[in-house]
Every structure is written in C-alpha cells, then in structure tokens.
Amino acid sequence: MEISDKEFFAPGHRACAGCGATIGVRLALKVLGENTVAISATGCLEVISTPYPETAWEIPWMHVAFENAAAVASGVEAALKSQGKTDTTVVVFGGDGGTADIGLQALSGAMERGHNLIYICYDNEAYMNTGIQRSGATPYGASTTTSPHGKESFGEDKPKKNMPMIMAAHGVPYVATASISYPEDFMKKVKKAAEVEGPAYIHLQQPCTTGWGYNPAKTIELGRLAVETGSWILYEIEEGEFKVTYRPIQRRAVNEYLNAQKRFKHLTDLEKERIQSHVDAICIELKI
C-alpha cells in the first residue's frame, strides 16, 4: 500500500504523552494524503490540535461543535461537489461521545443521504476531553467519573453500544472496525474507505492512557490486548459482506486486558467471568 512519508499531523500538539488518538489520525492521514479536508467534532482531538494561534493540521481542517461534525462534513462534501472538486477526500474524526451519543442523529442523516465521505470514530470509550465521563461506547464494568464503582455499583452497567452495526444498518457501502495497534489493517481499511463511492464508516479503537489508567508506554500493547483477547474484533462489511479481518492465533484471557487498566481494577472475579463469557459468546459465533 502506498503511504506517505510525510506527516500531516504535526508534533507540538497538546495531547497527553502516549495518546492513542493522535496515532490514529497520523496513520489515517498518511493514507489519505494532502488532497484531504478533515472535520473534527469537539473533543480531545480538536482541543489538543488547534490551540489558537497554532494548528497541528497540515491539511484544511474545520471544527464547529460537538454533535454536528457529520452535518458540517455533509456541507463540505456538497460544496466541493458543486465546485467539481470531487477528487478531494472529506474525512471526519469524531470521538465516541461525538459519534455514538450526541452526534448520532447528524451522523445517521449524513450516512443515509449518501455523502461521499469517510467518518472515523476514534473510540477511547468515554468523554475524555471533559474528564472521563461515560459514553454509550463505554464498556461494561468500566469505572468512569459518571459511572464510578462504589458500594452499590460495579461501574458502567450497560454493554458498549454497537456503533458499527448501527452504521451497517444504514446500508452504507463500507463499514469497518479497526485498532491503532494493527496499523496495516487500519490503513488498508482507510484506503478502501477512500476508494468506495459514498459514505464509509470506520470505528477505530484507541487506548487512552489518561482515561483507562495505564502507563503511556503501553498504549499499543493495550490495543493489542483488546484484540488478542477478543474484547475488540477487527472486521469489515463491504457492500453488506461481513468479514473478520484479523483472527488471534490463540485467543488470550480477557483478564489480561482488564487487569492492565485502572478502570477495571475494582471488578470482582465474578464480574470478570461475566465479561469473559460475553466475549466468548461473540467470539464463538465469529469463530475467533
């Protein structure tokens, strides 16, 4: 695959040391190249990348609000089309909150209308920018500042919202999950997303040192553990065709993933077993 040596997301940005979100953006932009317009939703990525009068973006970039990135991108795409600039790629980077919660309506509208754009949800599984509050994408059992564990609580009591399948239900030509820890897989998917005519959605898992509670050096390792334990599955849905794109050779115990993070530290063995059997059920169905 042709990827650029150039960096389209400059250093000097204000992300925490070891931030997984910026790795995702760097990799995606290396595939998409300079003829790309990026739109961000409010969230970590937007805040850390454009502290006025500076910007980390080497390509045109726009941010308006938290919940409307897909709608802004719809306007950008339509406007470029109206000027005959159809060779310019429009890519959105929305956090899991900006995507699965507050921005879901705007995203649904944009997907259904068929705009030719790529929507990448960078999923760190909580509202990190505002201090680790739970989102619809927060996994079962995670302790966040609005789903804290306590005497009466084991943390988040709902399973993670299945965003990629919600997107697939829109019948868009390309939907995929990805992880920053599997860059070839992710970048291949970005490439496909760029080549497909119409909307494409990529749900990118991105470990967050601050929100998940682990040593920043372990960002890639955490993403890997998620996939190797079957907690996060890499697949794509091309024109309705579902395909797992990566299968761990030997699925590892979910505990390895859970125990590496502070947000799951409070879980009892029983709760961890419950999570393991949930993961098993999905993996068995998918032959992982």
């Binding site: 400059a10 000097g12 940005h13 454009t50 006025y52 009068p53 500076e54 910007t55 973006w57």
Partner: peptide, 20 residues
Amino acid sequence: MVSVGAAVKEPGSTRKNKTG
C-alpha cells in the same frame, strides 16, 4: 490582533510548541 474567525493559516504551526 486575532485573525478573522480565529482561523489559523499556518499549517503545522504547533511545531512552535516544543513538547520535548
């Protein structure tokens, strides 16, 4: 003076901020 709409016209200018 702030640019109109606080747009930043110098791409990659976070490089001014040495995070080292």
